[in-house]
């Protein structure tokens, strides 16, 4: 049990020290991300509704 604080310091900690508190994510262009997740959302809605309709049809 002889780890020093130095050894325990990880790569990420060092990186984080350099981080700034204030963030400006708004500036990042994430239009493609947004389009991708909306496609994913659309897929969830379509499959869910399809089986829900199947449920209603089978309920007689």
């Amino acid at each position: 049990m002889s780890q020093t604080t130095e050894e325990m310091k990880t790569e990420k900690e060092v990186v984080r020290l350099k981080d700034n508190k204030k963030t400006k994510h708004e500036e990042v262009n994430l239009k493609g991300t947004f389009a991708s997740v909306m496609l994913l959302g659309g897929f969830l809605i379509i499959t869910w509704l399809a089986v829900f309709i199947l449920f209603l049809v089978r309920n007689g």
Binding site: T23, H25, E26, V28, K31, F34, M38, G41
Partner: peptide, 25 residues
């Protein structure tokens, strides 16, 4: 906590979708 504007819209949309599913059920 800071959340990107588009992520906010996505989460509102996604949570809304789940809410509508639950409402129907």
């Amino acid at each position: 906590m800071h959340i990107h504007k588009l992520e906010k819209i996505w989460l509102v949309f996604g949570i809304g979708m789940l809410g509508v599913f639950l409402l129907i059920l």
